[in-house]
Amino acid sequence: MRLILALFSGALFGAGLLYSGMANPARVTGFLDVFGRWDPTLAFVMMGAIVPMTLAWFVQRSMSRPLVEDRFSLPEKRELDAPLAIGAIIFGAGWGLTGICPGPAVANLGINPLAILPFVLAMIAGMAVHHLWARRSQNIS
């Protein structure tokens, strides 16, 4: 049941990315290109996505556990730190360079896998570099 629900949720997410146009890098770049032919569609997608999630967080606060899992595993960190800021800026640079963020990258594997594969492989490599680097600095300190 857990796995079927996760698959369904992923498929709905991927379908939404495609329908909203966010799987198309040109649409995303159009939003980021404020000095060009600005395309506000991404703002509508964010609005549409935040509505059900706001309701979900409201419901979540009154639940002791999720419907098909033993407990919630949610980020608890509160403090603002340098890795958060630096990581976000690095991510934003890559996002601006290509118009692609992780969700659309993976979703595009189902649409035009060959065109997106270099990005996905490089993204996995970037994640691996971070993983090794974080592990190493943990061992040193």
């Binding site: 146009g21 935040i50 979900a56």
Partner: peptide, 17 residues
């Protein structure tokens, strides 16, 4: 499309935590 994305995220949160 945004509603679909948000609903999918809500299923992950409320169903799978």
């Amino acid at each position: 499309g945004g509603l679909m994305i948000g609903t999918a995220a809500a299923i992950m949160l409320l169903g799978l935590g």
